[in-house]
């Protein structure tokens, strides 16, 4: 079984145990995708984590987009912005960095 900094991950690179997550793990995961995490990345990652904590699911992209726009400003509430941060998809890639399971309904 593969691991990142000792935390077990599945075949798609998602954490097996949500509780294993640390910021360092997110940094290593991002490096693996050639991304240096910026403040803007962290805004989204932290949002995903608090959304999951509150609702026990990862938000659908449509819901994420709306909520990010509401919280961080209209110019960020669109999928173009989110995809510029997470080229493999704010849902799939963002959730992976945030230590969450793959979003429901995400293929």
């Amino acid at each position: 079984m593969a691991d990142i900094l000792g935390a077990e991950v599945d075949e798609e690179g998602f954490l097996v145990n949500l509780k294993d997550w640390t910021e360092e793990i997110a940094v290593v995961m991002a490096k693996g995708d050639d991304i240096d995490l910026s403040e803007e990345h962290w805004d989204v990652i932290n949002f995903l984590r608090s959304y999951f904590e509150e609702y026990q699911i990862a938000p659908a992209v449509r819901v994420l987009t709306k909520a990010i726009g509401k919280q961080f400003g209209k110019e960020k509430g669109n999928s173009k912005y989110l995809y510029s941060l997470f080229p493999y998809g704010p849902g799939k890639q963002g959730c992976r960095f945030a230590g969450l399971p793959k979003p429901t309904g995400c293929i």
Binding site: E54, Y55, Q56, P59, A60
Partner: peptide
């Protein structure tokens, strides 16, 4: 088990 009753609060967003 996961307390998925919390998830019902997200339905409005959907």
């Amino acid at each position: 088990m996961k307390n998925f009753s919390k998830t019902f609060h997200a339905l409005g967003d959907y």
